[in-house]
Design a protein around this nucleic acid. Structure first.
Lengths: 222, 222
DNA sequence: ATAAGGAGACTAGTATCCAAGTTTTGTCAA
DNA sequence: TTGACAAAACTTGGATACTAGTCTCCTTAT
């Protein structure tokens, strides 16, 4: 009794446009026409419309009646909001995770940390990024709140689109790994205060990057 | 140069349906047909479709191709997620608010508390509920994060729809007021720990109600 | 030269038709 | 009575024609 969900044309258009926007292939301020996009994808206007409204609720497009819809620019307010929510959720999940932390969970996190170390030694940045992702996800999963990870991801993605503007592929991997260790240590020792402040410091890492982008690319902001 | 946003038919249908669903006039599991709703509102199917997709992203409707769209039931997972996110955001906002707290802000919160006290004395529950709302909002606004209030509201509404099933119009106003005072005291004294734990206790108030509803109305859950 | 005005080329919203899949229903046979 | 099976009556998704508002640019008059 599978619950196979048919993939609609709308889905396809949505996903492609979403990718193009968050990867900055389509820059903020770009005007998108329904008929134009429909032609490009070889579909009718209807699925494009559906995709547009979805992207609108994602805050990626600005849609106004009888006006050209365009790719939404960044706004410092929304970026800060997304960062606040992510910060809040991560801190609370750390809190909940600590309540149920045990040797098994600690071992799993330690295993991930070991792999991170390996990746840093090998200078394998892609692997490290994947492990970075897993590290954060592990805290959610082991803490018993996997769904919250999705919420956090949504926030993260909004900031990621912005940070693509700064090309520093920061080989700060060592520093990041050190912070991960600090967080893990806080959780292992059951020190909520320490674990949370480590996480807070870790998540604040992007502060300067964002401020820098705000100065260097003011035209992409509303 | 006003930015008047034209109200579309889609908006009207969306708002009406939204109200009917969150107020439980339309119960979970109810099947909604596009043509049916279109007839009822005297409009064509298209705006109804638009409204449906919006309600789908609100997680109020389950839409599957070629199958009847129905009002989504509750799921304990989603309820708990909404509560976690709200809890997380409220705690973080309290944190940020404390950083900037001063006599002026304290006075404004105190003014609200005085009005709450008045409402309780008068037994004016509607007024008290409005002031309750304002109390929480004040912390966001005074703390400098008004947008985060909207995020919290979204979470709250998901839980509110559930809690409508329990008719206890709790005249626990006094208890709530006491908790509000505790939170305000924590903020005024700058004791983050105390303010947050007060807020945590305050938001946990619904725990039993939700568990109770989960037991008494299992048919409304997925 | 400049400003007002109008035509036309855009825009998105709505209505309606058709396609494709699901569910219900009713008939007929065992 | 009950089962199978076919047909009809649903469902939503997609395509397209039409409506109505907005913007741009060119003409025309001052």
């Amino acid at each position: 009794m599978e619950d196979i969900v048919r993939r609609t044309t709308t889905d396809a258009v949505y996903e492609k446009l979403h990718d193009e926007i968050v990867s900055l292939e389509i820059l903020p301020g770009t005007k998108l026409s329904e008929t134009e996009v429909a032609r490009r994808f070889g579909v009718s206007r209807q699925p494009v419309r559906n995709a547009f409204t979805r992207l609108g609720t994602d805050e990626l497009l600005v849609i106004r009646p009888q006006k050209a819809t365009e790719v939404r620019g960044f706004s410092m307010e929304r970026i800060e909001l997304a960062r606040l929510v992510r910060m809040a959720v991560e801190l609370e999940v750390v809190n909940r995770a600590i309540q149920v932390w045990d040797a098994t969970r600690e071992a799993k996190l330690a295993e991930n940390l070991a792999l991170q170390e390996q990746a840093v030694r090998d200078g394998d940045l892609p692997a490290f990024h994947a492990l970075d992702y897993d590290f954060h996800k592990l805290i959610y999963v082991l803490g018993g709140h996997p769904l919250a990870f999705e919420v956090m991801l949504e926030c993260k993605q909004k900031v990621d689109r912005l940070c693509l503007l700064s090309l520093e592929k920061g080989s700060e991997a060592e520093a990041i790994l050190a912070e991960h260790r600090e967080i893990a240590a806080g959780m292992a020792s059951g020190r909520l205060e320490q674990a949370q402040s480590s996480m807070r410091k870790h998540l604040s890492r992007l502060d300067e990057t964002i401020a820098f982008i705000h100065e260097t690319h003011p035209n992409y902001f509303e």
